[in-house]
Computed example of a mutant assay.
Amino acid sequence: MKKILFYAMTAASALLCSCELFELDNYDGPGETIRGAVVDAATGNPVLTDQGSEGIRVRMTELSWGDNVEHNPDFFCRPDGTFQNTKVFKGRYNVRVDGPFIPIVREDERGVPLADESKTLDIDGVADVRFEVQPFLNVEFVGDPMVSNGRITARVRVTRGVSEAEFREKIEPMGGWDDSFLNVTDIQLFISYSSSVGYRARDERWSSKIEYTGSEFGDLLGKPVTIKSNKGQAIPSGRKVFVRAAARINYDTPRGDGTRRWNYSAPVEVLIP
């Protein structure tokens, strides 16, 4: 009888503890919002990007619990260089962005800070933040893309968004400098039925690329380069597609991440006759 009473009391105690645990975990979900934009410091124009992990990465670290904390899950900008997260807990955060531009947080090989243009802010309700950066490249169409027999021909001009001298001045102190970092490695022509056309939203039947080795693209900087859609399959007549051009250099951001991110042109709508 004593054993039965003991087991009954133990079960009741466990049940009570379980209820208390559920009560302690019954917090409101995150409901604060951060909105932001990444723009060219020289022109104020948005830094156009890809929709996905090849685009501009936003990293938030909550500081409310001290300095030795893990960052929140990363998220990414929209193609127009803006971002929004509506599921943030109230608190104090450090926010940084990484993309096809001079890193805003730079350290040398020993971890000694060289520059820190990240933002620290309190998020309570809606918080707005703006990052002014130096894009590696500027990419634009020269004239309108032309269509012939279901194939698109475009002229693309690529210029440096930051001079070679300033790029080296800011990147070399981080260590591991290589002259090849400045090389333009490829131009892409992304085509899709989606207005968010890019690497993540491209139709591989029509999208195409031109690759360059070493510094061979150097003489083409600032000059129109002709690129055509894939010659394999014609784009169906009567359809509307969206076209974007992109180019990148031989430098990954953040350094060591292995992702070389493209700078993009604005999307252009093309009607296939």
Rank of each mutant, 00 (worst) to 15 (best):
N94S: 15
N94T: 09
N94K: 15
V95E: 00
V95N: 01
V95W: 05
R96W: 03
R96V: 11
R96Y: 05
R96E: 13
V97G: 08
V97F: 10
V97H: 06
V97T: 03
V97C: 10
V97W: 08
V97D: 07
V97S: 06
V97M: 04
D98K: 08
D98A: 13
D98Y: 06
G99N: 12
G99E: 09
P100I: 00
P100W: 07
P100H: 02
P100C: 07
P100N: 06
P100M: 00
P100V: 00
P100L: 03
F101C: 08
F101E: 02
F101N: 07
F101R: 06
I102D: 00
I102F: 01
I102W: 06
I102S: 03
I102L: 15
P103S: 00
P103Y: 01
P103G: 02
P103Q: 00
P103R: 03
P103V: 06
I104T: 14
I104E: 10
I104D: 02
V105H: 07
V105R: 15
V105C: 12
V105L: 09
V105M: 13
V105N: 12
V105W: 13
R106V: 08
E107C: 13
E107H: 08
E107M: 12
E107L: 11
E107K: 14
E107I: 05
D108L: 12
D108K: 07
D108E: 10
E109H: 04
E109K: 11
E109F: 12
E109Y: 12
R110C: 08
R110M: 14
R110K: 15
G111A: 02
G111S: 03
G111M: 02
V112A: 13
P113C: 02
P113M: 08
P113S: 05
L114A: 04
A115D: 14
A115V: 01
A115Y: 06
A115E: 15
D116Y: 07
D116V: 03
D116W: 10
D116G: 01
D116Q: 10
E117R: 15
E117W: 12
E117P: 02
E117C: 04
S118L: 09
S118C: 06
S118N: 07
S118F: 08
S118P: 10
K119G: 01
K119A: 05
K119W: 00
K119P: 01
T120M: 14
T120S: 15
T120F: 02
T120W: 04
T120P: 02
T120G: 10
T120I: 13
L121I: 09
L121W: 05
L121S: 09
D122S: 13
D122L: 12
D122W: 09
D122Q: 12
D122N: 14
D122R: 14
I123M: 11
I123C: 12
I123N: 08
I123H: 11
D124R: 14
D124S: 14
D124E: 14
G125S: 08
G125Q: 11
G125I: 05
G125W: 07
G125P: 06
V126R: 14
V126I: 15
V126G: 02
V126A: 09
A127F: 01
A127Y: 04
A127T: 13
A127K: 15
D128K: 13
D128W: 08
D128L: 01
D128V: 01
D128N: 13
D128P: 00
